[in-house]
Design a protein around this nucleic acid. Sequence first.
RNA 1: GGAAGAGUGGCUGAGUGGUCGAAAGCGCCUGAUUGCUAAUUAGGUGAACGGGUCAAACUGUUCCGCAGGUUCGAAUCCUGUCUCUUCCGCCA
Length: 426
Amino acid sequence: MLDRKYILENATAVKQNCTNRNVQVDVDRLVELETARHAILQQVQELNTQSNVESKKIGQAKDEAERDALKIKARVLRERKDAAQSEHDRLEEEIKEIQLAVPNMAHPDCPVGVDDKSNLELGRGKHHPREFDFAPLDHLELGEKHDWIDFEGGSRTTGNGFYFLKGELVLLDLALQQYAVSELSKRGFTPTITPDLAQDSILEGIGFMPRGPETQIYSIENMNLSLIGTAEITLGGLYSGKTLADSELPIKLCGISHCYRTEAGAAGRASRGLYRVHQFTKIEMFAFTLPEQSPAMHEELRQIECDLFDAIGVPYRVVDTATGDLGGPAYRKFDLEAWMPGRGESGEWGEVTSTSNCTDYQSRRLNIRYKIKDKKGTQFVHTLNGTAFALSRALISILENHQNADGSVSVPECLRPIMGREVMGR
RNA sequence: GGAAGAGUGGCUGAGUGGUCGAAAGCGCCUGAUUGCUAAUUAGGUGAACGGGUCAAACUGUUCCGCAGGUUCGAAUCCUGUCUCUUCCGCCA
């Protein structure tokens, strides 16, 4: 959510930004309504003041007659105030609805474009895509060969898009989690296991739509709870409504959670195997910072993502996400796309991580503030998030890149001490 | 899940339907004082939104878990709801 005053004062820029992001919002209408609301608010306050003044006189009235006269006067004022108030509230509601739909502003360096075709490649990782001297299998074939992934069983017990992980692949999954958590701990992130459900108001604060026809979120019937699509939701919600001391910032959290996504409307898209599933585990980074800290923090998150994928020996490229592909909350977003030899005809890049600087967009919705000691007033913190490992996709990238001619898979060096083996599936 | 109790400012904790944004204490800040990392003492000390100002000063509204209701007026009365504590039950 953008500051309302900011929208009014920068209406042209806000409108241009909506266009760049391919978002339809009636900014003019918002400006018009807000101006009207302001005028009415003045009236409300004026009437309220008068009414308060009259009410106070009643307590000091010397007799019943005076009392009754004052009561009538006060009642009339109160009624006029209530009328103005309800008009004000009606406007407020409509304004809020529009305001919530306005996306965050975009970083000036963001490539402008309506979709991911305009994304800009910024660089590549340490490792390059392999030349195989045998016909590589995709992760599904590998998974089937070793009985590591059971989609059929997942489908039978739960539904299409669910799966069982089995055997050594579970060890690999856990090793990745442990490696990421331990690396992040070293870098000052507090490991955090979050609830897998959150209140709808928190989902909305982070920028998700928990209900409705286009929702990506599973919600619980008869409750205002939904399954989280990412730990970003719960980690961001952790300090909702709080005012933090500037001295405690930045706060860096490493969230471990399951992620649930309906993937509504995703049918038919290239999504074989583990690439697009309804449930996966994710190690997520999240940071609350002072505004001036957020660009450096964003860089830090991006660097960590690169370090992690370099460490597991997976080739990737870094992409600067175009305006139309940013979503609502992000001010700037970098994605890591890993090389997946089993995708497409002869391998494709597939998104494995994403890190966003959401500036004060989420904190304003969630009301997360900071206070500078000895300084009056409070400000909104900046929030950032980044993927350490989305396990499903990280597993794809390891299986497909590290497979051997005999169908076994070499364990990335950094995971060997954790897994206690150098090769799996042999 | 059942029963009882409680939710007030950074914390502890008063509060009779009107003079309560709210006593008192602690903490914190400022000043005074005493030759000494402290004591004593005076004063000050919440937030959001708006008006005002170059900036202040100043000023209006709202806020006593949350949402409604009664009333001219609610921290105070009523209803609902959430959270916490204790006891009981159940359970990994």
